[in-house]
Nucleic acid binder design. Structure first.
Lengths: 218, 218, 218, 218
DNA sequence: TATGAATGAGAATTCATTCAT
DNA sequence: TATGAATGAATTCTCATTCAT
C-alpha cells in the first residue's frame, strides 16, 4: 500500500512523486515551446529528475506529450464537473458557463497552448488515446438541458444545437486569449489589460445571450 | 505578376524565383510543423534551392518565419480589400463578412497554423515587424460604418465595438477550424464533413445576426 | 539434474532456478545479437528476473557472457562424451564423428553464434577462464586412436595430425552453417534446404574419407 | 572533372577523399568491434572527419556497415580476378587456389571479422544489397573448368560440385583463422606461429588434393 | 534473495549555420 | 547568385550499473 510510506521530506524513491514532477515540468515546457521546441533536458532539469526517468515512465517525448495532454483535459473536465448549471434560471446558467470558460482559460493559459500544439499536429496524439475519448464532456448534455428549459420557459430561441453553442462559447473565449499577442500587435491596442478583459467578457455574454433571446428577426 | 519576366532560357530572373520558391516551401513547412518542428533542410529541398540561399535571402530561420508570416498577412489583407461591404444592406454586409472569413480560413489552413505558431511564441516575430503593423486591417473601420448604418436603420443594436465583433467573427470561424481535429476526436463526431461545415456556417451567422438584431432583452 | 529439486509450490529453489533462467535467456540474447548488441534489460525481462539478480549471480555483462560461453562448451563436450568412437571400424568412426559434428552445429546454432562473438573479441573471455581450459576436448586423443588403428589396418594414410583433422572436420561443418546466409545470398542458391544439407553432409564425408584413404598420390 | 583539382596536400573539401577516409576507418572499427560494438565517434575521429559527414555520405551506422561490407567483398573479388587458374595443370590450380585463399584471409583479417559480424545478423545487410549480389564469384565457374580438366586427364575424381569444393576450401582456411584464438586457448597450443601456419597450409592442401585424387576407396 | 526506482555517462543522430569555390 | 561539403553544438534516447528497501 502506497500510504504506508514514511512522511519524511521529499522521499527520493517515490515513483508517484517523480512521475508527477515530470508531468508538471513537461506541461510547462510544452506549453511554452510547443512539441517541437520543447527540450527533454529542460523538462528533466525542471522536474529535478534524471532524464532517464522520463523515458522510464513515459516511453518517449511524444508519449510524455500525450500524458500532458490527457492530464490537461482531465483537469478541465474535472473543473467542469464542479459546475452545477441546472438549478438556476437558464440565463444565469449561460452567464455562468461563459464566465467559467473565460476564467478557466485565463487561469490556465497552458491549456490553450497545449491545445494549439496538438492542433498543429492534427490531433495525432489525442486520436491515439483511449483515455482522452472517455473525457468527452458531459457538459454538452447539461447544456442541452439548459437550452431546453430556456426554450420551454420562453426566454431562449429553440432548435439550438448544444454542441455548436458550446464550441462557439469556447471559441469566443479561446481565440481572444490565444491570439491576444498577435491581435494586440496588429491592432495596436493592448487587449490584455484588466479593463479590456472585462469588456471582452461583457461582449461575449452579450453575443451569446443576444443570440439566444426569443423574438428573432433573422 | 509573373509574366512580366523575360521568357528566356532556363533561369530567367532566378533571384526572384528562388526567393518565391523558398517562401512557398517555407510556408508549407512552418504550417505543417510549427517553427520548432520545421526543418531548414526540408524547406530548401522542397524549394529546389540551395540551403545557403535561404540564409542569403532571409538571414536565418526566424527571419524566414517572419517573412512567411508577413506574406500570409499580406494575402489575407489583400483578399479583404477585394471585399466591398458598404454598398449593401447591413445584414447582407455581415453575412458576407462571415462567409468571407469562413471561406478564407477554410481555403487557407496554413494561415491558421501559422497564426497558432506565432501565438505560441507570443507574437514575438510580428511584434518586431514594422511591415506587419502597417497591415492593420482597414476592415475594422468598414465594419464600424456597417454597424453605424445598421444602428441608424434600426436593424442593429447600437453601441457595438467593431473590433470586438470582428474578433468574435474571426473567433467563431477560426476556433472551429483550428480545433477541428481535437474536437472531432473528443466529441466523436466528424466536424470536417461538408454538411457539418454548412451547419457551422449557418450557426455562426445565426449567432452574430441574432446578437446584432434590435429589441434586446439582456 | 533438475529433478533432484523438491516438487513443492511455486518458488522451490528460486536461487538455482533464477540463475538458470538468466543463463538461458542470456544464451539466446548473446547468440542473437552478439556481445555488443545484447541488452541486459532484454535478458532480465526474458528471464523473468530482476535485473539486479543478473549482477548478483554473474558480476556484470561480461561475466554473464563468459558463463554463457562456458555452459555452451560444457554442453558440447558433454555431448561428445556420449560419443563412443573406438569400438567400430575406423571408417565408421570418422563417419560418425562428422555426422555428430554436423548435427550438433545444426541443432545448436547458438553455439556457432557464441563462438563467432568470442572470436570477434579474440577469445578474451575464454582466455581468462580456468574452467574453459579444463574443457579441452578428450576427443583429440580418441581421434588419434582411431587414426592409428586405421593406419595399422591399412585403410588410412599415416602421419595425420588428429588436431588438424579435428579442426578440419569442424571447419567444414561450421563454416557452411555459420555463413549460410551470406553464402546463400551471394551465390543465389538456398543452402539451408534439406536436400542442400544432405548434399553437404555427403560432400564433407567424401572429402574427409577421400583424404584419409590409403594409396595417396600427393 | 575530378582530376582538375590542385594537387595540394590534403584538400579540405574533397568529397571522394572524405568518403574514402570514413570507409577505411569504419572497416577497421567494425572489424575490431562488430556492428554493435563499433562507435560512430571513433570512426569519425579516426577518419579525421566531422561526425556529420558520416551521415551525409552513408545515411546511418547500418548504411555505413553495408558500404564497408560491399567494399570488402569488392576487394576480394577483385583479387580473385587477378588469379589465373586455367593455364596450368589442374593439381597446380588447386594448390594455387588454396594458397591464395589462405593468404588472402591471412592478410585481410578484417574480411573475416566483417563476415562474422554479418553472419551474426543473418546477412540482413547483404541481402538488401543489389551490389553485393553482382559480386557473385566467377571463381566457381573457373573451378568447374579446372575440375573438368582434372577429370578428363584422369588425375581427379569426377562428379565434384565446384561450389561445395569452393566452400570447403574457404571453410578450411577461414575457420582456422577466425577461431584461432579460441582454438589456441582451448587446446593450449599456439596456432598463430609461423610453423603452425605452414603446417596448416600443408594439411589443407593434403586434404583437398587427397580427396580429389583418382582411385577412391570410399 | 528479490525488487522497482534511479543514475550518469555515452550512444546515435540531427540541427541550424557557414565555408571554399 | 549559387553550390556541395563541412561544422560543432545540441538533441533524443539508451546503456550498464547501483541504490534503498
Amino acid at each position: 500500500m502506497r500510504n504506508t510510506k514514511p512522511a519524511s521530506g521529499r522521499p527520493p524513491r517515490d515513483a508517484e512523486r517523480t512521475r508527477a514532477a515530470i508531468l508538471e515540468a513537461a506541461t510547462e515546457e510544452f506549453a511554452r515551446h510547443g512539441l517541437g521546441g520543447a527540450r527533454v533536458d529542460r523538462i528533466s532539469a525542471a522536474a529535478g529528475a534524471n532524464k532517464r526517468m522520463l523515458y522510464y515512465y513515459f516511453g518517449d517525448k511524444e508519449g510524455l506529450f500525450l500524458a500532458v495532454l490527457e492530464a490537461a483535459y482531465a483537469r478541465i473536465r474535472n473543473a467542469e464537473q464542479q459546475l452545477s448549471l441546472v438549478d438556476m434560471p437558464p440565463v444565469e446558467s449561460i452567464r455562468k458557463l461563459i464566465r467559467f470558460t473565460w476564467n478557466y482559460f485565463l487561469e490556465h493559459p497552458e491549456f490553450i497552448s497545449l491545445l494549439n500544439s496538438e492542433n498543429l499536429h492534427r490531433a495525432s496524439h489525442l486520436r491515439r488515446s483511449r483515455r482522452a475519448r472517455r473525457l468527452n464532456s458531459p457538459l454538452i448534455e447539461t447544456l442541452g438541458l439548459v437550452l431546453d428549459r430556456g426554450g420551454r420557459e420562453g426566454v431562449f430561441r429553440t432548435g439550438v444545437d448544444p454542441l455548436q453553442l458550446y464550441i462557439s462559447i469556447a471559441a469566443l473565449c479561446y481565440f481572444y486569449l490565444s491570439n491576444i499577442h498577435t491581435l494586440s500587435s496588429i491592432f495596436g491596442r493592448d487587449l490584455a489589460t484588466a479593463p479590456a478583459r472585462s469588456a471582452r467578457l461583457k461582449h461575449m455574454t452579450d453575443v451569446v445571450l443576444g443570440y439566444l433571446r426569443k423574438e428573432a428577426i433573422s
